[in-house]
């Protein structure tokens, strides 16, 4: 199992992602954004969190034109598995590999805290180790995490089981930290090979540091 982790100028979660996947037994490689290709042995491509290009213009807007993104798009279109976390989710929506967009949080504040998430659909490789309605405790850290999609797009997400995770409280009841449509925290594409979420499972790998629920989430990708 080989995980390739993208690094743009301003990315800051690539080493957390590396730690997380190595803890799970995967081989990892950090790939600088100037690369024109994705390593051939890649089983999972992670677009890590951070502030690519300083979030200038819009979060993820400039990263989508980095040299590596052409190869990422080709990799995704040919069925390669891609996971975008936080800024990586923003990059994937900007690159139109995932539907919708991430707006400024409704409160206008940067939010950094642990938050509960409910599994809405485990009918995909990412969350198949979890059951629907399971609640996990995962850190969020974002300014632009307010997921937006129009009504038609939202219906399509539900019709195809593409809504993966929603924000909730410890009991699994709705609790929306940032104004996201229907409290959506994570989605996938129709083909179920491109995944995006604002919360950081790679920062929830050690119970000593608050939660190890990220293990159950990321483990899904480790299947041979």
């Amino acid at each position: 199992m080989k995980v390739t982790i993208l690094q743009f100028p301003g990315t800051n979660c690539e080493y957390d992602a590396q730690y997380a996947f190595e803890k799970l037994g995967a081989k990892t490689e950090i790939l600088w954004h100037k690369s024109q290709s994705v390593p051939a042995d890649t089983d999972l491509l992670v677009v890590a969190g951070g502030f690519s290009y300083g979030d200038y213009l819009r979060s993820g807007a400039i990263a989508k034109f980095s040299p590596v993104m052409k190869a990422v798009t080709a990799y995704a279109k040919s069925g390669g598995k891609v996971l975008g976390i936080c800024n990586g989710f923003q990059v994937l929506t900007e690159a139109r590999l995932l539907p919708g967009a991430l707006k400024r949080n409704e409160s206008l504040h940067f939010i950094s805290k642990h938050h509960h998430l409910k599994v809405i659909s485990n009918d995909n490789i990412f969350l198949e180790k979890l059951d629907n309605s399971d609640v996990v405790n995962i850190p969020i850290a974002h300014h632009d995490g307010n997921y937006y999609i129009d009504q038609n797009g939202l219906k399509e997400l539900y019709d195809n089981n593409q809504v993966l995770l929603k924000y909730c409280d410890a009991n699994g009841d709705d609790k929306n930290p940032n104004g996201s449509v229907d409290s959506i925290a994570g989605i996938c594409n129709k083909e179920r090979n491109v995944f995006g979420l604002m919360p950081h499972p790679e920062r929830a790998m050690e119970s000593l540091l608050g939660s190890s629920d990220g293990i159950k989430m990321l483990q899904g990708f480790l299947k041979a």
């Binding site: 213009l57 400039i62 034109f65 929506t93 919708g100 967009a101 707006k103 937006y148 999609i149």
Partner: peptide, 8 residues
């Protein structure tokens, strides 16, 4: 292509 995100 860049200056606006026409989704929003």
């Amino acid at each position: 292509e860049l200056l606006a995100n026409t989704v929003i």
